[in-house]
Design a binder for these strands. Structure first.
Length: 161
DNA sequence: GCCAACGTTGGC
DNA sequence: GCCAACGTTGGC
């Protein structure tokens, strides 16, 4: 994936003045040993399956097409490593065929951060003190505010001109 | 490897 | 409805 290949699209999304529709921002966690950002890049698209928590499930169900999603590596050197995009809204999780409670969305890689935004640096950034990530450490799918999204993107060296 | 946080289960 | 026991997640 060429680093700035998608930059013009990203710029459109993260500039509130030019945003064509209401955008939602999210954060999803994955243990890189299980499924990493590079795995998503390699696949080009992935079904985000396996969520078995109601709060996380409700967040998946609230995602709309083209929402941007911070991709967070948990456990090992935790931090945000990339930006993904919602390319399919929720549908039943095929990995729980006998349990209709659970859903998936499809995600595609949008843009790798130039620099990982570590959990430690998030904790040190006063503007991010209110992040749900810091208050509810076990939640794996969560909303992110527009301001928080901007801050993370800038910390990841994807500054908007 | 340890432990805190927190969600779920099941006894009462 | 309460709560103890237990399992899982995730930071350190």
């Amino acid at each position: 994936m060429r680093p700035n290949q998608h930059y013009p699209i990203l710029k459109q999304y993260i500039n509130p003045i030019n945003t064509p529709t209401i955008m939602n921002y999210w954060l999803v966690k994955s243990e890189p040993d299980t499924f990493s950002w590079n795995d998503l890049v390699t696949l080009g698209r992935d079904m985000w399956n396996g969520v078995r928590n109601y709060q996380a499930r409700n967040n998946l169900m609230a995602m709309t097409l083209d929402d941007l999603v911070l991709f967070y590596h948990s456990v090992k050197n935790p931090g945000v490593v990339g930006i993904a995009k919602v390319v399919s809204t929720h549908y039943p999780d095929p990995t729980s065929p006998d349990d209709p409670r659970w859903v998936v969305v499809d995600l595609a890689p949008e843009q790798a951060l130039e620099q990982k935004v570590s959990l430690a640096s998030i904790k040190q950034q006063p503007e991010l003190a209110g992040m749900l990530l810091l208050r509810q450490s076990r939640l794996s799918v969560m909303p992110v505010t527009t301001a928080e999204f901007h801050t993370i993107v800038q910390m990841g060296k994807l500054t908007v001109k």
